[in-house]
């Protein structure tokens, strides 16, 4: 009897607690909606939108073997010192030459972060530092990166680099530092800032008169990249992994 009354009291206390927590939750929800409104009220800049999915289309028939303009463009843009030791230097884009043993066909292509829709690096990151933005760009939040390098192990494209040494003379638009992992950012600082801005690699490729790299919105059927994909097609590297990459290759 006594125990049942104690139970009763307990359950009443629990109910009260539940009500209290519910109220708190409501208050929290109200506060959340308020924050959203607040964000919308911003006039100076807008957030990355899920309506877009940024991607690259690389035409390997236009990409010249021995040309590394995109790599140099990327290095200059992000202040990457290419003269560092091969063992430790950062590499956001690699040029790869392929030869089909059967047909003898040779092709050359740049490989960078493929900005996967279901990115393995995001899956394995223990701190949430490796993340995918609403517009599909996969980034490292270096403020939360602990440099464990799980993402580097998980990436099937070997797209990420770890910074081993202290750096100086970073670019204002590209903060980089020792102890963190980094990779291609699709030049977010450029594409966020102004409309029709292209990533540095695409600009460098066009300047070299190859125009092998097309950047654009994969979700927009009228964008240059979507139209080219529709007419000429584009494949994913390691498509067997079904990662739905944002970087596509034509002519492989």
């Amino acid at each position: 009897m006594q125990s049942s009354s104690t139970n009763n009291k307990n359950s009443k206390a629990q109910q009260a607690r539940r009500r209290f927590l519910q109220k708190l939750g409501l208050l929290g929800a109200a506060a959340d909606s308020y924050t959203l409104l607040e964000l919308q009220a911003k006039t100076t800049a807008s957030a990355a939108s899920g309506d877009k999915r940024w991607g690259l289309l690389i035409d390997t028939s236009k990409c010249a073997s021995g040309c590394d303009a995109c790599v140099r463009g990327c290095n200059t843009e992000h202040g990457i010192d290419a003269s560092d030791s091969d063992l430790t230097r950062a590499q956001w884009i690699r040029k790869i030459d392929l030869k089909d043993k059967l047909t003898g066909k040779e092709s050359s292509l740049p490989v960078m972060c493929q900005h996967c829709d279901s990115a393995p690096c995001v899956d394995v990151c223990p701190t949430g530092a490796s993340f995918k933005r609403a517009d599909g760009v996969v980034l490292v939040n270096k403020h939360t990166c602990i440099g464990c390098r799980y993402c580097m192990m998980a990436c099937p494209y070997k797209a990420r680099s770890f910074i081993h040494e202290n750096l100086t003379e970073q670019k204002p638009s590209a903060p980089r530092g020792k102890g963190t992992v980094e990779s291609c950012t699709l030049c977010v600082h450029r594409i966020d800032s102004e409309q029709d801005m292209q990533p540095a690699c695409a600009v460098a490729c066009t300047d070299e008169a190859h125009s092998a790299i097309v950047f654009g919105d994969l979700n927009d059927p009228d964008s240059n990249i979507s139209r080219q994909l529709q007419s000429a097609g584009g494949s994913q590297i390691r498509s067997d992994l079904q990662l739905n990459t944002g970087v596509r290759y034509h002519g492989l």
């Binding site: 911003k42 100076t44 800049a45 957030a47 933005r133 939040n141 638009s173 966020d192 800032s193």
Partner: peptide, 21 residues
């Protein structure tokens, strides 16, 4: 503002470290 910029891609707001420098 750092979190807004890095995670959400909001740029051009006043409290930026680049602005300080």
């Amino acid at each position: 503002q750092r979190d807004e910029t890095v995670i959400e891609g909001v740029r051009g707001n006043p409290f930026s470290l680049v602005g300080c420098v």
